[in-house]
Measured scan of single mutants.
Amino acid sequence: MQGVVKVNSALNMRSGPGSNYGVIGTLRNNDKVEIIKEVDGWYEIRFNGKVGYASKSYITIVN
């Protein structure tokens, strides 16, 4: 499943599904990501070869 990031500035990509996990990357508005699965309001995603987590509130699913 594919998604597009929708933010005003930047979205942190984290090592786990929560804001208490470390930041491993930064996503920008309109970045395209691969959604692997949903975990407690977060998406596990793949972006630029990295796998991490981002809040699903800021990612819109596209077909």
Rank of each mutant, 00 (worst) to 15 (best):
E38L: 09
G52E: 00
Y43I: 04
D40Q: 10
S15N: 13
R28L: 09
G16D: 02
V23S: 09
R14N: 11
V23M: 06
V23P: 07
G16Y: 02
S55C: 05
N29R: 07
Q2P: 09
K56D: 04
A10N: 15
K50G: 10
S15T: 11
E38G: 05
I45Q: 00
S57A: 10
G18D: 06
E44C: 05
R46P: 05
P17A: 05
V23F: 04
I45S: 01
S9W: 08
D31T: 14
N29W: 06
I45K: 00
N20Y: 12
V33I: 06
G25D: 15
Y53M: 02
L27A: 04
Y58W: 10
S55H: 13
V33C: 04
G41I: 15
V4Q: 11
G3C: 03
V23T: 06
R14P: 02
Y43F: 15
G3M: 03
L27R: 01
L11I: 15
K6S: 10
E34K: 07
M1S: 08
V5S: 02
N30V: 03
V39F: 09
P17N: 02
K32N: 15
K32V: 15
Y43P: 00
S9E: 14
A10S: 12
P17D: 01
M13R: 00
G25T: 10
V39M: 08
L11D: 03
G49A: 07
G16P: 00
S57G: 06
L11E: 09
V39E: 10
V62C: 05
G52M: 02
G16T: 01
G22F: 07
D40A: 12
Y53I: 00
A54V: 12
K56C: 04
V62T: 14
G22R: 14
V23I: 15
V7M: 04
N12D: 15
K6M: 14
V62Q: 07
N20R: 09
G3I: 03
R46N: 10
K6H: 15
N12W: 13
K56M: 11
A54P: 00
I61Y: 11
Y21L: 02
I45L: 10
R46I: 06
Q2C: 04
I35H: 01
D31W: 05
I45V: 14
G3P: 02
D31K: 03
N12L: 14
Y53S: 00
Y58P: 03
G52Y: 02
S19M: 13
G41D: 14
G41M: 14
R14I: 07
R46F: 11
I59L: 05
I36S: 06
G41W: 06
G22C: 05
R28W: 13
V4P: 01
K56E: 07
I35Q: 01
I35Y: 03
I59T: 02
Y43T: 02
K50M: 10
F47N: 06
S9I: 08
R28F: 12
N29G: 08
Y21W: 10
K6C: 04
G25V: 11
A10R: 14
V39P: 00
Y58L: 07
T60P: 04
K56S: 09
I59W: 02
V23G: 04
T60Q: 12
R28Y: 15
I36T: 11
V33L: 08
Y21E: 03
L27H: 01
Y53F: 10
G25E: 12
L27I: 08
G3R: 01
G18A: 06
I36N: 07
Y43M: 06
V5C: 04
E34Q: 11
L27C: 04
S9M: 10
N20D: 12
G52F: 02
N12T: 12
D31Y: 05
G3H: 03
V23K: 09
K37M: 08
N48T: 10
I45N: 00
N20T: 12
D40R: 09
I24S: 05
S57H: 08
L27E: 00
G49Q: 08
N20E: 14
K6A: 14
S57T: 14
G3A: 08
L27F: 03
G22P: 09
N20S: 14
R46M: 12
Y58R: 09
K37I: 10
F47W: 07
E44K: 09
D31Q: 07
V51G: 08
M1V: 14
L11N: 03
E44M: 11
G18I: 00
S57M: 08
M13N: 01
Q2V: 13
G16V: 01
I35V: 11
V5N: 01
E34T: 10
K6Q: 14
T26F: 12
E38I: 10
A10E: 14
E34W: 11
G49F: 13
V39C: 04
M13Y: 12
S9L: 08
N8K: 07
K32I: 09
V4W: 10
V23H: 05
I59C: 03
E34S: 09
V7S: 07
W42V: 01
N63A: 13
E38W: 05
I24A: 06
Y21I: 01
V51N: 08
E38F: 06
F47C: 04
Y21T: 04
L27W: 01
A10Y: 13
E34I: 06
R14F: 12
G41A: 09
V62M: 09
P17Q: 01
S15G: 10
L11V: 09
G49E: 11
R14C: 04
I24Q: 04
K56V: 15
W42H: 04
V62S: 12
N12Q: 12
R14A: 05
I61H: 07
R14M: 15
N48Q: 14
N20F: 14
E38K: 05
D40T: 10
R14K: 06
Q2S: 11
E38Q: 09
G25L: 09
N29M: 09
F47D: 03
E38H: 06
G16N: 03
I61M: 15
P17C: 02
G52S: 03
G49R: 08
I24R: 03
G16C: 03
S57E: 13
M13L: 11
K32S: 13
W42S: 02
K32H: 14
G18E: 03
V51H: 14
F47H: 09
Q2F: 11
N29L: 06
R46K: 15
G41S: 10
V5E: 01
S57I: 15
R14W: 11
N48W: 06
G18P: 00
V33D: 00
M13Q: 03
G41V: 07
G25R: 11
G52H: 01
V62N: 06
M13G: 01
G52K: 00
N20I: 11
S55R: 09
N20G: 13
K37R: 15
N20W: 12
N63G: 15
I59Q: 00
I45P: 00
S55D: 14
V51M: 11
N30I: 03
